[in-house]
Write a protein that binds this DNA or RNA. Structure first.
Length: 280
DNA sequence: AATGAAAACAACCGCATGTAG
DNA sequence: CCTACATGCGGTTGTTTTCAT
C-alpha cells in the first residue's frame, strides 16, 4: 500500500470530509478497532487516538449531533453526576446518542453558568453591568462587603430560616449569601415574581470557625449553631421548593461543587439582585 | 448592523489501564 | 514478570455559533 503522506507528519485540527470517509471505510472493513493501523497503513496522517476520538464522538451511527440536551437528559446527567461523580463515559451510557464528550461539555457549560451566576450575586449591580469587566471568581474586594454579622448569624435563632449557599467554591471569596426563606414563603404562580423580587440577599463574611476545604458538608456550614434537619424542616414548612424542580436539596457530604450542582441551572432565574440596605 | 459575551462544540493532551508478546 | 503498544477516560483549551445589547 502506497503511503500518501510523510510518515513523520501528524495532522491535527479539524477533520475534512475526505478523512471522515477514510475513517468510516476503515470501520466498515475492520470494525471500530486497530485505530493505529490507519496511520501505519498510510491511510490517514492522524494518530490512532485522534481517529478513535473522531469516530466515537462524531462519526459513529445514531449520535444526536447538533441538538440540545432535553430536560430529561439534563435530569439524568444531574442525577448520575451526583451519584457517580465525573464519570462521563458511564453517564453517557445512560444517554442514547450522547457521548462522554457531549456530557462533559454540557456539564462544563452548566458549571460555568452557575459560577458566573454566583459571582454576579456576590458583586454589586454596577460591577455586573460594567462592559468588558466580567467579574472574576474569587476577586470580590473585601471593602465592597458591608460589615457583617457573623455574630448575628451565630446568635440569631432565626438563622435556621436561611437558605444559604457557599460562594467559596468559586474561589474562596470568604463571602456567602443568605436568602431569607420566609420572604419566599409559599410563592404562588400568580405572585411568584412579586415575592421573589422582594428577596434580599445579604452578604455575610464567612463564619470565623469555617475553614474552606475541598470537602465539607452542608451540616458543617451551619453547625454547631444550627440544627440542619430543623433548618430543612422549617424550610419545607415555609417554602415550597417544588418550583425549583427539586424533591429536596442535598444535605449529604459533598464536595464544594457537588453541593451546588445539585440545583437546576434555572433556579437562579427566579432570583434577582436586590440592592443592599446601604445602597437604597 | 456591529460588537462582545456566553454557550456549544471539537479536538488535543496526559494519564491509567488492559493486553499481547 | 516486564515492556511496549493500544485503547479509553477525564481535563483542558481553542474555535465556532448563538444570543443580547
Amino acid at each position: 500500500m502506497e503511503k500518501q503522506f510523510d510518515e513523520t507528519y501528524i495532522k491535527k485540527g479539524p477533520w475534512s470530509a475526505e478523512e471522515d470517509e477514510v475513517l468510516i471505510n476503515h470501520v466498515k472493513k475492520h470494525g471500530s478497532r486497530d485505530w493505529s493501523s490507519l496511520r501505519s497503513n498510510g491511510l490517514l496522517p492522524r494518530t490512532g487516538k485522534s481517529c478513535r476520538l473522531r469516530w466515537v464522538n462524531k462519526l459513529r451511527p445514531n449520535l444526536k449531533g447538533g441538538c440540545r440536551f432535553s430536560a430529561e437528559e439534563e435530569r439524568v446527567v444531574i442525577e448520575l453526576q451526583a451519584a457517580l461523580g465525573n464519570k462521563w463515559a458511564k453517564i453517557a451510557k445512560h444517554l442514547p446518542g450522547r457521548t462522554d464528550n457531549d456530557v462533559k461539555n454540557y456539564w462544563s457549560s452548566r458549571r460555568k453558568k452557575l459560577e458566573r451566576m454566583l459571582q454576579q450575586r456576590s458583586s454589586p449591580p454596577n460591577t455586573q453591568k460594567a462592559k468588558g469587566k466580567t467579574p472574576v471568581a474569587g476577586q470580590v474586594p473585601v471593602e465592597e462587603v458591608p460589615a457583617c454579622s457573623s455574630n448575628q448569624f451565630v446568635e440569631d435563632p432565626s438563622c435556621c430560616k436561611y437558605f444559604s449557599y457557599p460562594a467559596s467554591f468559586v474561589g474562596n471569596t470568604e463571602v456567602f449569601n443568605l436568602v431569607n426563606l420566609p420572604d419566599l414563603a409559599k410563592p404562588s404562580s400568580e405572585n411568584l415574581e412579586k415575592d421573589l423580587s422582594a428577596v434580599e440577599a445579604t452578604p455575610l463574611q464567612m463564619l470565623p470557625s469555617f475553614e474552606p476545604s475541598s470537602e465539607y458538608t452542608f451540616d458543617q456550614f451551619l453547625e454547631p449553631q444550627v440544627n440542619l434537619s430543623a433548618c430543612r424542616d422549617l424550610a419545607a414548612e415555609h417554602f415550597d421548593l417544588s418550583f425549583l424542580g427539586l424533591d429536596g436539596y442535598n444535605t449529604q457530604s459533598t464536595d464544594a461543587n457537588g453541593f451546588f450542582e445539585n440545583f437546576p441551572t434555572d433556579m437562579f432565574d427566579y432570583f434577582q439582585y436586590s440592592p443592599r440596605s446601604s445602597e437604597q
